[in-house]
Design a protein around this nucleic acid. Structure first.
Length: 283
DNA sequence: ATGGGGGCCTGCCGGC
DNA sequence: TGCCGGCAGGCCCCCA
């Protein structure tokens, strides 16, 4: 269920045990997740050193010494668990295998990285690192919201002329890549923009204001995730799931948190997804 | 080209 | 207690 901040938290948690480390054995327990795994995936992972662990949008990308990149998507319910004790962080034991442990990377350094995904909306694939972002899943992604190419001018233009609700536009990964339902709701709350407003009717001024707000919402969440990583390593090694405090998401019926606002959080359904917002101060 | 809806899966929670 | 409907943070694909 991870959005960009959770995926980044997972990446940061995996990096110390994966970057520079060698995959001794890849255990692949089923032929597919959302799509079939690439041919001979286990063999193509076995013996490979991980040169770098990157993130693009909600995808984790592991560059291998073979010249291939392992693409990982957590879908809605994907989780990563680190076990073993490669860094001397008190995870001496490997937990018993659980249902939905689909892929396990046994690292030469003693770490074990388990991908567990009950709903199987996740994905794994291999592609030539040199082909860059030509992969079908990456090719149509818009700019990284925390990157330089996501700027005020770009964003105002991207929203202008769109007939769809601004909520849908922000969920559109080709406009900006990495936001999901939660952080869209949170960003629109901070910006005081109703999720129902058509994208084309968001003024350039407000679109401009939204850019740093999106960055802040994501940045705050990454910071919260980062500070929780230590705890997860010491506890059970599970990455990417931690307590968030949201202003509107999941707070239907509760009071609006904006100072001076006496409204309450409403839930509406837009294209089949819940939107949480305060109709009083989001227009 | 754009926008909306269906579908993929399993687990969990609340209501009866 | 058991069953059932509704819901879940993603994203591709098809259709109008």
């Amino acid at each position: 269920m991870p959005e960009l901040p959770e995926v980044e938290t997972v990446r940061r948690g995996l990096a110390p045990v994966m970057e520079g480390a060698v995959i001794a054995r890849a255990e692949v327990n089923r032929p597919d997740l959302r799509w079939p795994f690439p041919p001979d995936m286990a063999a193509r992972l076995t013996g490979q050193r991980v040169l770098a662990l990157r993130r693009r949008s909600k995808y984790i990308l592991a560059d291998l010494a073979s010249g291939e990149t392992l693409l990982i998507h957590l879908g809605m319910s994907g989780r990563m668990l680190i076990s073993g004790d490669p860094l001397g962080q008190f995870m001496h034991t490997h937990p018993a295998p659980e249902k939905h442990d689909h892929v396990v990377l046994h690292m030469e350094n003693g770490a074990r990285i388990t991908f567990n995904d009950p709903r199987r909306f996740g994905a794994m694939d291999l592609f030539a690192t040199a082909s860059g972002e030509a992969h079908a899943l990456l090719a149509k992604l818009g700019p990284e919201p925390l990157g330089n190419s996501f700027d005020e001018r770009y964003f105002a233009r991207a929203l202008s002329g769109r007939n769809t609700p601004v909520k849908s536009a922000l969920l559109d990964q080709s406009i900006v890549a990495g936001l999901g339902n939660i952080y869209v709701c949170e960003a629109l709350f901070r910006a005081g923009i109703s999720p129902r407003r058509k994208a084309k009717n968001v003024s350039a001024k407000r679109a401009t204001a939204l850019v740093p707000i999106i960055r802040d919402v994501l940045g705050d969440a990454i910071e919260a995730g980062g500070s929780s990583l230590r705890d997860f390593r010491q506890a059970d090694g599970e990455l990417g799931y931690f307590q968030h405090s949201f202003d509107v998401y999941g707070r239907e019926g509760e009071p609006c948190r904006r100072e001076g606002c006496d409204g309450s959080v409403a839930r509406i359904v837009q294209s089949g997804r819940s939107s949480f917002y305060c109709a009083q101060c989001q227009r």
